[in-house]
Amino acid sequence: MASIVVQQLGKSFRTKKKREGFAGSLKALVRPDYEDKTAVGSISFKVEQGETLAFLGPNGAGKSTTIKMLTGILHPTAGYAEVLGCCPWKERTKLSYGIGSVFGQKSQLWYHLPPIDTFELMSRIYELRRGDYLQRRDQLIERFELGPYLHTAVRKLSLGERMRCEIAAALLHRPQVLFLDEPTIGLDVVVKQRIRELIRELNREEGTTIFLTSHDAGDIERLCERAIVINYGRIVFDDRVELMKRRFLTHKTIRLVLEEEPERVELAGVSVLEQSGVRLALSVDTELTTIEAALSRIMARHRIVDVTVEDPPMESIITHMYGYSGKEELAT
């Protein structure tokens, strides 16, 4: 059963265009010039219950706008969406009892008060039964290890501690769908890893559907089964994360340790990434040549002490996708 269905959803904003400088400001004051900017073109997709979906795209691609339409914050200019049986912008109140949202840059915790106070308020906002609330709160405190700073004002918490509290606050009412908009932004590696584990556990144990936007390759690799890539307001990829790797994996890296220092490496489809003494890192374009062919040509010239073949990190796959798969797709 689907948790989220999106049909040709679109959103455009009317924005004022202003030329540079003071003269531009004066001109805009007398005769303003407007343009319609499409934030989300016309996207359609479905998310099954219990799925973990990464919703990706470069800055300005329309990710946050889509999340805001699916949570009822923004009204679309075209199309339809349904989340847990509710049209988000028409049944916002009803829907919000079934979903949770964490916006990395918009806090729902009260800045000058400890997280426990915000939890108490959340129990009133979501009208939780007292017993259920206390049980759920204690469970989340234990799982997210919030005990030590539960009574410390939010302004005094580290970003990582605050984000754990944010996620716990969004989960108090046991939402069936959790929208996370860049939840690991600005966090260190250890905290990111812990937050990913917690979200993963939640998805496994409670069957919560996860809808995540992130620029962090680790979030996508370690958390999500499926990815949708959006660019220039259009979906340019919608499939399993594994397939995303395969489809966009046009390069592999060969790391070599040779017996002697190599001469210049000049092979078709192979470029040198790094060379330091007997160590050599090569990038192989698998559309032009094969790993086997590249290796056999190197072996014909040099004796190899050690060799490893690596996929490029998810980071570079995403960079690659953001780089070209936007306007071309939009034009077709």
Binding site: L84, G85, Y97, R124, Y126, Y133, Q176
Partner: peptide, 29 residues
């Protein structure tokens, strides 16, 4: 098109009698 609305708000008292009392408790909090 999606899952049943009836499943919403599993641990919430949403939709049950006493809506005004719960609203006032929220305001007070």
């Amino acid at each position: 098109l999606t899952a049943d609305k009836g499943r919403l708000a599993s641990i919430s008292e949403y939709g049950r009698p006493g809506q005004l009392r719960r609203l006032l408790l929220f305001v007070w909090q």
